[in-house]
Amino acid sequence: MILFRCDSVYQLMNAIQIKMTLLKDESADLLLSDHTNFDPLIPALQESGIFEEVKRLYSKKKADEYWTYTKEERKNISRHPQKYVDMTVFDKEYTEFYISFETAYAKLMYYAMVKKGMHPKVHLFEDGMATYVCDVNKRCMEDGMDHESYKEDKFIENIERLLLYNPALFTGEKMPFPIEKIPAIDYKNKEVKDIFHHIFGEAKLPKQKFIFLEEAFFDDKIPSNDLELVLRIAEIVGKDQMIIKLHPRNKVNRFKEYGFQTMEHTQVPWEITLMDEDITDKILFTVSSNASITSKLIFEKNMNVIMLYRMFTGKTWLMGNANFSLYHERSIKEFNKDRKNIYCPHSFDEMGEILKYIEGVEKIERRS
């Protein structure tokens, strides 16, 4: 029996895609944590029949608390995980455990299953940019757990594979397990689209031509110049032609006082909008958000993205990762093979030239 665990709507979308394609003949349960409010989605998920059972996991408090303990306390927790995690969710014999990112709590869940006599194989799956630049072995060495005490059941020794939409983009450290492809979501297939619409709903793109995808720098308390970048872009393209897609974690709308229009938070994932709409008549701006390239990544649909990380003055943990630049270099090379989809200017002058170029491409594509 398979158990999927999801913390976000994007993870849930990917779990559904994996289940409907790679595991369509397998029985699987779904575990939804309280890191996201999944309540509105649960009735439709249950009706869809994709998963045999949809369960809830209330783990956020314990997941956050784990990092407040000393290294020795964390080691003791890992030796007795059944005292820390919710054991009631393991009411079946699970042989496969699908998790999107190997968080500390997810690893404790794995060890709790081991303590209960299960020996599940772990499958890691797509969760945006972090999945492509991660070093699972290093993260295991830094989590404070006593992995060695589990011997042949050690977490990293039981990872079966990593599932990504585009394995060629992986720039993390060499893994002792294979990296395999998740099939692109078939947006032309009405049956597939109907399933995603039934679960997540539908949403339209805004009328504005230019969309800026905010990132969580403000919520993460990372000093940055993203607001200054937005103000300069507005001077170039016109504020009335621009809209801001706020990051879900940022509770403060920093752009409203400057007169910017913003996209409201909804339960419908950005990816569902991309599935339904042709985005080539829009131009997306972002510093480094992976949401800007998901059109190409998970649907293989063209887009126009201007990434501003070369003009960004802040420092995030991802940008500090040695594999960050390589990931973006590979993304540009991969997604610009047949058509220019991603641009990375060094200056506003270069950005102006890029905008002129995109305008010319749009005219050609409209005529063809």
Score class of each variant (00 low, 15 high):
Lys333Cys: 09
Thr294Gly: 10
Glu329Asp: 15
Gly314Gln: 03
Leu297Arg: 10
Leu297Gln: 14
Thr313Gly: 02
Ala291Asp: 01
Tyr309Glu: 05
Glu334Tyr: 15
Tyr309Ala: 03
Lys296His: 10
Leu308Met: 12
Ile298Asp: 00
Val287His: 01
Leu284Tyr: 07
Thr294His: 07
His328Trp: 13
Ser288Ala: 11
Leu284Arg: 03
Phe299Met: 05
Asn302Leu: 07
Tyr309Asn: 09
Met319Ile: 13
Arg330Asp: 06
Ser289Asn: 10
Ser331Met: 09
Tyr327Ala: 00
Met303Gly: 05
Leu297Ala: 09
His328Ala: 01
Lys315Thr: 10
Phe324Asp: 00
Asn321Val: 07
Gly314Thr: 01
Thr316Gly: 04
Ala291Arg: 00
Asp281Asn: 15
Ser331Cys: 15
Thr316Trp: 04
Ile293Gly: 02
Ser292Pro: 01
Ser292Glu: 07
Lys282Tyr: 14
Asn321Thr: 12
Ile283Lys: 01
Val287Phe: 05
Val305Tyr: 00
Ser289Gln: 04
Asn323Val: 07
Leu326Phe: 06
Phe312Ser: 00
Ala322Trp: 03
Lys301Ser: 13
Tyr327Ser: 06
Met311Trp: 05
Met307Asp: 01
Arg310Phe: 10
Met311Asn: 08
Ile293Thr: 11
Leu297Met: 14
Phe324Tyr: 12
Ala291Glu: 00
Asn323Lys: 13
Ile306Glu: 03
Ile293Cys: 04
Arg310Leu: 12
Ile332Arg: 15
Lys315Phe: 14
Asp281Phe: 09
Val305Gly: 04
Ser289Cys: 14
Val305Cys: 11
Ile332Gln: 13
Ile293Pro: 05
Glu329His: 15
Tyr309Leu: 08
Met311Gly: 04
Asp281Val: 06
Gly314Cys: 11
Thr313Ala: 05
Lys333Ile: 13
Val305Gln: 05
Ala322Ile: 06
Met303Cys: 08
Leu284Ser: 08
Met319Ala: 09
Ile332Glu: 12
Ser292Cys: 12
Ser325His: 14
Leu297Asp: 07
Gly320Trp: 03
Asn290Phe: 06
Ser331Phe: 04
Lys301Arg: 13
Leu326Gln: 14
Arg310Tyr: 08
Ser295Ala: 12
Ser292Ala: 12
Asn304Pro: 04
Ser289Leu: 08
Arg330Gln: 14
Phe299Pro: 04
Thr280Ser: 07
Asn290Ile: 09
Leu297Glu: 12
Asp281Ala: 13
Asn302Trp: 11
Ser288Gly: 15
Asn302Pro: 07
Ser288Tyr: 05
Trp317Met: 08
